[in-house]
Simulated assay, not measured.
Amino acid sequence: MTVTRKRVSMLVAAAALGTALAVPATATAAQQGGDSVASAQAYSCSIKNINGKKQAGYYSGNSVVPSSGSVTSAGIEAQCILKAMGYPTGTVDGIFGTNSKKAMRQFQTDVNKVYGRTVLSVDGLPGPQSWPYLRTFW
């Protein structure tokens, strides 16, 4: 079984059981309001199935592109989801840097492989096109 199929199988099983996927971190969860959070630290992640969509509780939208220069709630959310799916983002710190972009590029590539065609641009950033695929349990 490929790594991608293992990741997908894990998410499908968790969704079917109605359980949350937890990703350990060294610090407690941070502020959840607004797009920008004060400083970089490690955030804890717990992915929940809310109305059939993956949610970590930091950002609920589908349009914000996380920043590579500052901590954002969208960055924390994307890192949590990617990490729960088995993509190595490095520390979940809300800064969408090199590791996070590499993990996102791999996710985008895997989605394209699953569909057998290009459905996502492989740019390494979650944006309006990629967020719905990140949030979907498949």
Rank of each mutant, 00 (worst) to 15 (best):
S70E: 02
S70F: 13
S70V: 01
V71T: 02
V71F: 10
T72V: 13
T72C: 07
T72D: 08
A74S: 15
A74R: 06
G75R: 01
I76D: 10
I76F: 09
E77L: 13
E77I: 08
E77Q: 05
E77W: 07
E77A: 10
A78R: 02
Q79H: 05
Q79R: 02
C80H: 00
C80D: 00
C80I: 00
C80E: 03
I81S: 03
L82G: 08
L82D: 03
K83R: 15
K83Y: 06
K83I: 05
A84V: 07
A84D: 06
A84N: 01
M85E: 03
G86M: 04
G86Y: 05
Y87S: 05
Y87H: 12
Y87K: 07
Y87V: 03
P88V: 00
T89G: 10
T89L: 02
T89P: 06
G90D: 08
T91K: 09
T91Q: 12
T91L: 10
T91W: 05
V92K: 00
V92Q: 01
D93R: 07
D93L: 01
D93A: 02
D93Q: 10
D93C: 04
D93H: 07
G94Y: 13
G94K: 06
G94V: 11
G94R: 08
F96N: 07
F96W: 15
F96P: 02
F96C: 05
F96H: 14
F96R: 06
G97R: 14
G97T: 00
G97C: 10
T98N: 10
T98F: 11
T98V: 14
N99G: 01
N99T: 06
K101R: 15
K102L: 12
K102F: 07
A103P: 05
A103T: 09
M104Y: 05
R105W: 06
R105D: 03
Q106H: 08
F107H: 12
F107L: 12
F107K: 09
Q108K: 13
Q108A: 15
Q108P: 13
T109W: 02
T109L: 08
T109G: 07
D110A: 10
D110S: 11
D110N: 13
V111H: 01
V111M: 12
V111F: 06
N112F: 03
N112P: 04
N112Y: 04
N112S: 02
K113Q: 13
V114K: 02
V114H: 04
Y115A: 11
Y115Q: 12
Y115G: 05
G116Q: 11
G116R: 01
R117A: 15
R117W: 10
T118F: 01
T118D: 15
T118I: 00
V119K: 03
L120K: 01
L120F: 05
S121R: 14
S121N: 14
S121F: 01
D123N: 14
D123Y: 10
D123T: 03
